[in-house]
Write a protein that binds this DNA or RNA. Structure first.
Length: 566
RNA sequence: CGGGGUGUGGCGCAGCCUGGUAGCGCACCUGCUUUGGGAGCAGGGAGUCGGAGGUUCAAAUCCUCUCACCCCGACCA
């Protein structure tokens, strides 16, 4: 392809409305342009990358025995009502009505549609297992779209749905998908990690997330420093700590802590560690208030809490509720004297004898508050996020925390959807059974962003070879020199004939501009043809990733490039 | 939705506090020179300052409302 014929609008400055590296670089390299918040157009170069990712995904899914289909993005409300998700999915579902006032949504995921298809068309165990996938645009009205393609409201996703006759079969399918995902992310060229995960809104019993390791990731991953254990921080199990020695603490006493609002401020003011403070958070779970206690240096994990309570809805209590329940202003809640609601403590709270707690009064704390003596705790449970140094749930070592970008997620759904939608087949005894399902997602467009996030330097993008928009960029330097252009064109044509994807930088720009744009675009190999080297029969080959430049005899340049591309 | 912030030629920004009719760099067009890491000179095109309303002789600038976008939190591929 000729550079001058492609729309590659590179930007010299960082765009004002981009913060993340991948977002900035994708805009600057002319891969994408914003249309509205979380909605982007893909320009020629961006689409080339996306297609490459798509094809890798497609090839591996096919190899794993899944069949490609295409389901509609526009879906009738009735199907969603069958599973109850028309109500449950909430505002994230893009809803619309047709001219007859019938309700529709733009699909954020396709369990309903595929289950409907399968229950109509698959009747016998003989057709099982069966696994369908599609690569399609999804719509989610995200609360806060951000970071360019990382979290859009419209994005490209590969979603697969498997149907098995029994749990055993479903587990095998799950395993096959798990392995296919490893291959996919390896081929795409990302450093990633599969971690245990919570299954969220989609539901189901077990699930793994595939995380691309990157500083800007929105997720936190807890992984063991010694063994193979790795889990989303939301999921990482923590066990009960040691019980404290039952030495008698001094009597509880109130102290004045004027203007000390944050945990840090109070711990500084009273000169106690944050760990010594007890945070009391009030939640409302399905209309019922609950108090939760965690140490000052820990964070509550709402997913765990929700699960423990078996609650459908869980939110922090609003100011009025706090006042009603604690008889004190919000922001000053403590466990002492709390009645009429359950008080649950995190396991770690158990391991210390006494705490500094809020007193349900402005500017006041209690010292030496002892659980069980000065306030009651109905039960202890695992309620917080793991932190660096927590014990690994599998071995003796401790946990470290990394950030990651979720690019894939596999779920064992079981019969959750097939039961609700009454999707059944006849087993070999002629008995009706519910399909055992699994579902498997990959954020195709997100992979693109994650790849940039993980592969860049101060000069621009450094594409992994497998998903680069082109394999090679040819940069002739004196475009007015006939010998230069002949040599460059010859190499260009020869490489094309070898099915290598080449971008020919034929713009009438200064050398510096060409070099800078080439580094920004991040095509893995640059072949630089200049008069000076040409006189010695040489061309220059630059590897974008390392910056290494070598001089190669003209006759060998095609061979050298081919070697590096394959 | 709560908190913080920004909207001025295509892009990045200044001007706003202390109202007086829009400026800088880059990009763009023409010509000449230049050409191994974002060129120089000369000439030129392009904005009514997110939108609406108000105050005023006069509004990018002050006031009110509104919209869009970005960042932090809850959601997720």
């Amino acid at each position: 392809m000729y550079y001058s014929k492609l729309l590659i609008p590179t930007l010299r400055d960082d765009p004002a409305d981009a913060e993340t590296i991948s977002h900035k670089l994708m805009l600057r390299a002319g891969l994408i342009r914003k249309v509205a918040s979380g909605i982007y157009s893909l320009l020629p170069l961006g689409l080339r990358v996306l297609s490459k990712v798509e094809n890798i995904v497609r090839e591996e899914m096919n190899k794993a025995g899944a069949q490609e289909i295409l389901l509609p993005a526009l879906q009738p409300a009735e199907l969603w009502e069958e599973t109850g998700r028309w109500d449950k999915y909430g505002k994230e579902l893009m809803r619309l009505t047709d001219r007859h006032d019938r309700n529709f949504c733009l699909g954020p995921t396709h369990e309903e549609v595929i289950t409907d298809l399968v229950r109509r068309e698959v009747k016998s165990y003989k057709t099982l297992p069966i696994n369908f996938y599609q690569i399609q645009t999804k719509f989610r009205d995200e609360i806060r779209p951000r970071f360019g393609l990382m979290r859009g409201r419209e994005f490209l996703m590969k979603d697969a749905y498997s149907f098995d006759a029994d749990l055993e079969g479903a587990k095998k399918t799950y395993q096959a998908m798990y392995e296919a995902y490893h291959k996919i992310f390896q081929r795409v060229g990302l450093r990633f990690r599969a971690v245990e995960a919570d299954s969220g809104l989609i539901g189901g019993s077990s699930s793994h997330e595939f995380m691309v390791l990157a500083q800007t990731g929105e997720d936190e991953i807890a992984s063991c420093e010694k063994c193979e254990y790795a889990a989303n921080i939301e999921r990482a199990e923590l066990t009960a700590g040691d019980l404290p020695s039952s030495e008698s603490a001094p009597k509880m006493e109130a102290v004045s802590t004027p203007e000390q609002k944050s945990v840090e401020a109070v711990s500084r003011f009273l000169d106690v560690s944050a760990n010594q403070l007890l945070k009391t958070l009030l939640f409302v779970a399905d209309e019922k208030p609950v108090a939760v206690l965690v140490c000052g240096d820990h964070e509550i994990n709402e997913v765990k809490l929700k699960k423990l309570l078996g609650a459908e809805a869980l939110a922090l209590a609003d100011h009025d509720t706090v006042k009603r329940v604690t008889n004190g202003p919000s922001g000053f809640s403590g466990p002492v004297g709390l009645t009429g609601l359950e008080i649950i403590g995190d396991f770690s709270v158990q391991s210390k004898a006494e705490y500094v707690v809020e007193a349900n009064k402005e500017d006041t704390h209690y010292l030496h508050a002892v659980p069980g003596r000065d306030f009651s705790v109905s039960r202890y449970a695992d309620l917080r996020n793991a932190v660096h140094g927590d014990p690994c749930p599998r071995c003796e070592a401790s946990i470290k925390i990394d950030r990651g970008i979720e690019v894939g997620h596999v779920f064992m759904l079981g019969t959750k959807y097939s039961e609700k939608m009454d999707a059944t087949f006849l087993d070999r005894n002629g008995k009706s059974q519910h399909f055992v399902m699994g579902c498997y997602g990959i954020g195709v467009s997100r992979i693109m962003a994650a790849a940039v996030e993980q592969n860049h330097d101060e000069r621009g993008i450094v594409w992994p070879q497998q998903i680069a928009p082109f394999d090679v960029e040819i940069i002739p330097i004196q475009e007015k020199s006939e010998v230069v252009m002949i040599a460059a064109t010859t190499i260009f044509e020869t490489l094309k004939r070898k099915n290598i994807e080449v971008l020919f930088e034929d713009r009438k720009e200064r050398t510096g501009v060409k070099f800078n744009d080439a580094d920004l675009l991040g095509i893995p190999i640059q072949v630089i043809i200049g008069q000076r080297n040409l006189e010695d029969g040489l061309a220059e080959l630059k590897e974008r990733k390392t910056g290494e430049k070598i001089l190669v005899p003209l006759d060998d340049i095609v061979k050298e490039v081919t070697k590096r591309c394959c």
